[in-house]
Amino acid sequence: MQYSGLNNFLSRGAASLATGPVALVFAEDDVELDTTLRHHQQSGFDSVVVFMPTVFDLPPDLTDSVHRVDYDPGAEGAVEAAVNAVIDAAPGIWLYYCFNAEYLFHPFCETRVIGEMLAFHAEERRDAMLCYVIDLYAGDLNSAPDAVSLDEAYLDRSGYYALARADAANHNHPKDRQLDFFGGLRWRFEEHVPPERRKIDRIALFKAKPGLRLRSDHTFDDEEYNTYACPWHNNLTAAIVSFRTAKALKKNPGSTFDISSFRWHNSAQFEWHSRQLLDLGLMEPGQWF
Rank of each mutant, 00 (worst) to 15 (best):
Ala229Pro: 01
Lys209Asp: 00
Arg198Pro: 02
Leu214Phe: 09
Leu214Gln: 02
His218Arg: 10
Asp221Glu: 02
Ala239Thr: 14
Thr227Arg: 14
Gly211Ile: 11
Ala204Gln: 01
Leu212Tyr: 10
Ile203Asn: 02
Phe243Ser: 05
Ala238Asp: 00
Ser216Asn: 11
Glu223Thr: 15
Pro210Gly: 02
Ile200Met: 07
Ile203Gln: 06
Asp217Cys: 08
Trp232Ser: 13
Leu236Val: 15
Gly211Pro: 05
Ala204Asn: 01
Arg197Gly: 14
Gly211Ala: 07
Asp217Lys: 06
Leu214Met: 09
Asn235Tyr: 02
Glu196Val: 15
His218Thr: 13
Leu214Asn: 01
Glu223Pro: 09
Glu224Cys: 15
Trp232Leu: 12
Ala238Met: 01
Ile200Gln: 04
Phe243Asn: 03
Phe220Trp: 09
Asp217Arg: 07
Pro210Cys: 03
Lys207Ala: 05
Thr227Pro: 00
Asp217Ala: 11
Ala229Tyr: 05
Ala239Arg: 08
Pro210Thr: 03
Asn234Thr: 11
Leu212Asp: 02
Asn235Arg: 09
Cys230Val: 10
Ala204Lys: 01
Ala208Lys: 08
Ile240Val: 15
Trp232Asp: 09
Leu214His: 04
Leu205Pro: 03
Asp222Met: 10
Glu224Leu: 15
Tyr225Pro: 00
Val241Asn: 09
Phe220Val: 07
Arg213Cys: 10
Leu214Tyr: 05
Tyr225Phe: 12
Leu236Gln: 12
Thr219Asn: 06
Ile240Cys: 11
Arg198Gly: 05
Lys209Met: 10
Thr237Asp: 04
Cys230His: 09
Thr227Asp: 00
Asn234Asp: 07
Arg213Asn: 06
Arg198Ala: 04
Ala204Phe: 03
Ala208Val: 06
His218Phe: 13
Pro231Tyr: 11
Ala239Met: 10
Cys230Met: 07
Asp217Thr: 07
Ala239Cys: 14
Ser242Pro: 01
Pro210Tyr: 02
Ser242Phe: 02
Arg198Phe: 05
Asp217Glu: 09
Pro231Ile: 13
Ala208Arg: 10
Glu196Asp: 14
Glu224Lys: 15
Asp221Phe: 07
Ala229Ser: 13
Ser216Leu: 14
His233Met: 09
